[in-house]
């Protein structure tokens, strides 16, 4: 591990000042950052321990929704009575991720900022444009089993690995950020980026900005499901995951907010799916059309070709479960 300075800010402003240095990293639960520091994938000069800040609260929000503090642990969020009753998709997604021990440490903000588990990113003997811009991508012609099929670029095919944010994208939650330029809100759906020419940037957070909370909208009701397809039943990243908030009205779909994990560099949300599904009767043919739309630009890289049919099947299964349609 490269030597680093360690500081504890006494205010949000102070935290902003400390993290505005490009070689600084904020640390909360540390479940991802410390691993990466041991591997020298992350080599910050300074660690800013934001656990000193009071950002752990989960409280009712003005919009009738719920504000989840950036330092609320995943365990606390998943167990919160309002999350369980009003936003079950979020509780389910969180509980599908990592292990109990990790969830006890992992936080809302840290989870949003976690980095890809691409094998080439975490191995400093390998080329990786995300870790070292311009060095190339080892995964494109390598073992790309975990990798993206949507929104990739010739520079990077990494996936965003988390589950929590996928549910938040389906719920259309908002990330609250404070920084040198003041406060701003970014929809979770826009928080993570596609790799493009700058895969080193995972999300839209700028230097000196700190996540303070995620705000969930007023309860949306409906049937809320999180389906995570994985190789073993715990402690494995999603091959494909689907977060769904679906409401029926008189045999027709009244709401269908969907987001996908394991497919892209970000939790994948395609607004066209909702447009296609709403107002329709749930049938296998309709689900197929939705999958066609979702996957029309999908591109496999050999090892991960299977994700394309798997995403289609996971989508159909989830919609069937949510709507009661027979497949």
């Amino acid at each position: 591990m490269k030597p680093f300075r360690y500081s504890r800010p006494d205010s949000l402003d102070h935290a902003g000042q400390l993290t505005s240095d490009a070689d600084a990293r904020a640390i909360a639960g540390g479940t991802n950052l410390i691993d990466l520091m041991k591997l020298q994938v992350e080599t910050p000069q300074q660690l800013v321990d934001i656990n000193t800040l009071s950002l752990g609260e989960i409280a009712d929000a003005e919009n009738g929704g719920l504000s989840i503090g950036a330092l609320a642990t995943n365990t606390a969020t998943a167990a919160h009575p309002r999350v369980r009753s009003d936003y079950p998709v979020l509780a389910r997604a969180i509980l599908a991720g990592a292990t109990q021990q990790l969830r006890n440490k992992a936080t809302t903000g840290g989870n949003l900022c976690q980095r890809t588990r691409c094998y080439y990113f975490t191995n400093i003997d390998q080329p990786c444009n995300k870790r070292e811009p311009g060095s190339g991508c080892g995964a494109i012609d390598g073992i790309a089993r975990l990798h993206a099929v949507l929104g990739t670029s010739p520079h990077c095919i990494a996936t965003y690995p988390g589950d929590m944010a996928v549910a938040m994208a389906a719920l259309d939650a908002t990330v609250q950020i404070i920084g040198p330029a003041g406060e701003r809100s970014v929809p979770v759906r826009d928080f993570h980026r596609l790799p493009g020419d700058t895969p080193e940037k995972d999300n839209v957070l700028e230097a000196g900005e700190v996540i303070t909370a995620v705000t969930l909208p007023a309860p949306v009701g409906g049937k809320q499901l999180y389906r995570k397809v994985r190789e073993r039943s715990s402690y494995a990243f999603a091959l494909v995951s689907v977060a769904a908030v679906v409401e029926m009205d008189g045999g027709r779909i009244a709401r269908a907010d969907l987001a996908f994990g394991g497919l892209a560099h970000k939790p994948w949300h395609d607004p066209r799916l909702s447009e296609l599904l709403v107002g329709e009767e749930p049938t296998a043919a309709l689900f197929d059309k939705a999958a066609d739309l979702l996957l029309e630009d999908a591109q496999g890289y050999g090892e991960n070709d299977f994700k394309i049919p798997l995403a289609r099947r996971a989508l159909a299964a989830t919609l069937a479960e949510a709507t009661g349609a027979e497949l």
């Binding site: 012609d141 073992i143 039943s233």
Partner: peptide, 30 residues
């Protein structure tokens, strides 16, 4: 039967899944 596999990079022969997060032994729930 279900989970364990070493994956080697076809380009330079290195082992890619070299930790217990990515080399999948069965967990309790399995």
């Amino acid at each position: 039967a279900l989970t364990e596999a070493l994956h080697f990079d076809p380009q330079d022969g290195h082992l890619v899944n070299c930790d217990l997060a990515e080399y999948h032994v069965p967990v309790n729930r399995d």
